[in-house]
């Protein structure tokens, strides 16, 4: 039997928008009219549009075009595993940068991301890409543009060679 596409993922944005609209209105309710007028109109528009969408979704379920569930949202397991791993690495990149500093975090992130997506057999390519990326990022962001990224002793030492 052919699987019908699931409706649940399509509901996340309208339901989330309504929830955000309610939260928005709760924060502006006590404010003067001019500070809340745009919020009121936009939240009302979101409610109306979502209502129309819900009716449409209801009809699609009723006619058997779609099912409750998440069918069709996720792709093949390998791609999904890679995608979630890259997301975890991205979160790790942000959390760890204040601890590990600029250079180490970028190298570790790019190296692991290449391995996660390309496979362990690309370990050499991963190392070269990570090294190249780290050098370019360091030269552009730290040496040339002097952005105040979190740095540690390694970054400070490297900076000392250039500045």
């Amino acid at each position: 039997m052919e699987k019908r596409p699931g409706l649940l993922p399509e509901l996340i944005i309208p339901v989330g928008s309504i929830a955000f609209g309610i939260y928005y209105l709760s924060t502006v309710w006590e404010l003067p009219f001019q500070a809340k007028v745009v919020g009121i109109y936009v939240a009302a528009a979101i409610a109306i549009l979502s209502f129309i969408l819900f009716i449409r979704f209801g009809r699609e379920i009723w006619s058997g075009q779609k099912s409750w569930g998440i069918e069709g949202f996720f792709s093949d397991p390998v791609s999904e595993a890679r995608r979630w791993s890259v997301l975890a690495l991205t979160v790790g990149f942000i959390v760890l940068m204040p601890v590990l500093g600029f250079v180490v975090t970028i190298f570790a992130f790019v190296f692991s991301a290449v391995i996660v997506i390309g496979g362990v057999e690309r370990i050499k390519a991963a190392a070269f890409t990570a090294l190249g990326m780290t050098i370019v990022a360091f030269l552009v962001f730290i040496v040339l543009v002097k952005v105040r990224f979190p740095t540690n002793i390694i970054d400070q030492t490297l900076k000392g060679f250039f500045l």
Binding site: V86, T90, F93, I94, I106, F109, V110, A113, V114, I117, G118, G119, R122, A125, T129, A130, M133, A137, F141, V145, V147, F149
Partner: peptide
């Protein structure tokens, strides 16, 4: 290929978000 492009885009754009 994505295994080169994705890490580079992610690293550069996340750093760009900080700037």
């Amino acid at each position: 290929p994505a295994f080169f492009l994705v890490p580079m885009i992610l690293a550069f754009t996340l750093l760009g978000a900080f700037v």
